[in-house]
């Protein structure tokens, strides 16, 4: 079915081509603040996933009834409700991780990626596409969080998901679990991402060029 492949396309774009962190550079606050270990990054990613998918679903379902003039306030009410649900659930189920993530769970409300998806996508598309888009975007967000959290935990503590990797003699890179390490690692990841994208574009151009030449040659 044609529509299925385009729904799939909406999901896949968030993972890489329109990645909310690496390409749109959105949601920087949780990105920098809570990624000092892989587990924190994953939990924050899951919380964002839940909030974004839920809000996109609701916004897309009720878009006919949402008046344009108050749409932002309504989006915020919807998002904030989901965030509160996540906040209390984490506090009850995973108190240790809630302590680590602390103030950043309530701050998911202010994650501009979530509001951005409601405004740019969910309010204009039907439920299926909105949910697919939300899944893709939060998936991309989670990939970025996870990448940053893994690098910082491996270098900063010498562990991965709390499992010691290098033995007791490992010299931990203290800066990596501090805020400057977040900025440094994110900058380097962005550098790498852009370098890779550029390389890929150049390569595709080259391929296209040689194809064209082959076509021209064959034409003669």
């Amino acid at each position: 079915m044609a529509t299925d492949s385009s729904a799939y396309e909406e999901m896949i774009k968030g993972l890489w081509r329109d990645n909310p962190v690496f390409v749109q550079v959105l949601g920087m606050c949780p990105m920098l603040a809570v990624t000092n270990s892989a587990i924190n990054a994953v939990v924050m990613g899951l919380a964002t996933f839940f909030v974004l998918v839920g809000s996109s679903f609701l916004v897309s379902s009720f878009k006919q009834w949402i008046p344009k003039q108050v749409r932002i306030s309504l989006y915020i009410i919807i998002i904030a409700t989901f965030v509160t649900v996540v906040d209390y659930s984490l506090l009850a189920l995973l108190p240790a991780i809630h302590k680590e993530l602390g103030a950043f769970i309530p701050l998911i409300v202010a994650n501009c990626m979530i509001l951005g998806r409601q405004e740019a996508f969910a309010s204009k598309h039907n439920v299926k596409y909105a949910v697919m888009d939300a899944v893709g975007m939060s998936g991309g967000f989670m990939i970025a969080l996870f990448a940053l959290g893994s690098v910082r935990e491996i270098l900063g503590v010498g562990a991965f998901f709390g499992i010691d990797l290098f033995g007791t003699n490992f010299e931990s890179w203290v800066i990596m679990i501090l805020p400057p390490g977040g900025f440094l690692t994110l900058g380097l990841l962005l550098l790498f991402f852009n370098w890779f994208t550029e390389r890929r574009r150049e390569f595709l151009l080259k391929v296209a060029e040689s194809d064209r030449m082959a076509y021209v040659d064959g034409d003669k």
């Binding site: 385009s6 878009k63 740019a120 204009k124 598309h125 039907n126």
Partner: peptide, 10 residues
């Protein structure tokens, strides 16, 4: 962003 999936009259 294309609106090709837009099934409603937003």
């Amino acid at each position: 962003m294309t609106d090709k999936h837009d099934k409603t009259k937003a």
